[in-house]
Amino acid sequence: MQAATPPAKIIAEAADWLVKLKDKPLTASEKSQLKQWCAQSADHQRAWQAAQQLNQSFEQVPEKLGLSVLSRKQAQRRNLIKAISALLVIPTGSWLVYQHSPISSWTADYQTATGELREVMLADGSQLILNTRSAVNVWFDENQRLIELLEGEIQITTVSDLARPLSVRTEHGQIWALGTIFTVRLDSDYSQVAVQQDAVEIHTAATDKVQRITAGQQSRFSEVEIEPARISQPTTATAWTRQQLIVDNQPLAEVIAELSRYRKGWLRCDPAVAQLRLSGVFQLTDTNIALSNIAHTLPVKVVYRSAYWVTVTNNK
């Protein structure tokens, strides 16, 4: 008789064997132990078959393809699921709007791939720029213009329309535009807004806190809290729209984290050099060049174990 539900103990033991097998080749005595283990019952055999099937599946996938697809944007998958669940708890007011609006008011998502920069003209003439790895839903009707930022970073240049306020919603809250140019960036724990012209108003999702941010300022907010506004250099905040990264006396780790948004695979900074400080302007069109420039400026080297796995480490 085979167990209908997965037998936890047998599976845990099979997993132990797999961990051992990946570590180093089995010795002759381990091999015979494994054989004995498999022979214990039909369930043991079945578990081991599944184990082999799993390893074979991985062997069939070309390494580069597997890495870039299977290790893709965890953030995006999480944000999508969050966005889906967020729709389940839309406040009553907007729920009614969704229900009664004509079907054509929904438009398709806009998305960008890693390293891509995309400009979109919206139906009202507002301009939307999407930075690398970004995704938005745009939803316009006769009462409002709503842009839902699901992932990444955008800049909006709004066209004023008093009858239909424009807002950007993230999982952390909503940003109401008061006729402006501003950027919004979504990170896992907070959203960040920088205003280049006029002003916006931030409303947190969970606590209804409100704060006004004006041109030349920026602020971060979570679903419960809004940080005090700080000074934001417009050229620095919008550098990405010109495919540049402007860095002013920042720790290397932060700069590397920033560059990694623009390239596929893993880009990591060795903790030993993380605190080195750096200033400069980097082109985002080719992060390899940016990395090699960093290696010329600081006592670090860039180690390419593969195109998808790069470490910035000590120069020794």
């Binding site: 990946k22 799993l54 390893n55 599946s57 991985f58 069939q60 996938v61 070309p62 390494e63 393809l65 597997g66 890495l67 697809v69 299977l70 290790s71 965890q74 998958r77 893993w266 593969s306 796995w309």
Partner: peptide, 30 residues
């Protein structure tokens, strides 16, 4: 075949925490 395998693996790894997934892929793929 590759495409189907990648899809199956993706579904299989879907609920794994980020670090576990990353470590697993480094071992299995790299």
């Amino acid at each position: 075949l590759i495409r189907q395998t990648v899809e199956q693996l993706d579904a299989l790894l879907d609920r794994l925490p980020k670090r576990v997934r990353a470590i697993f892929l480094l071992s299995q793929l790299e």
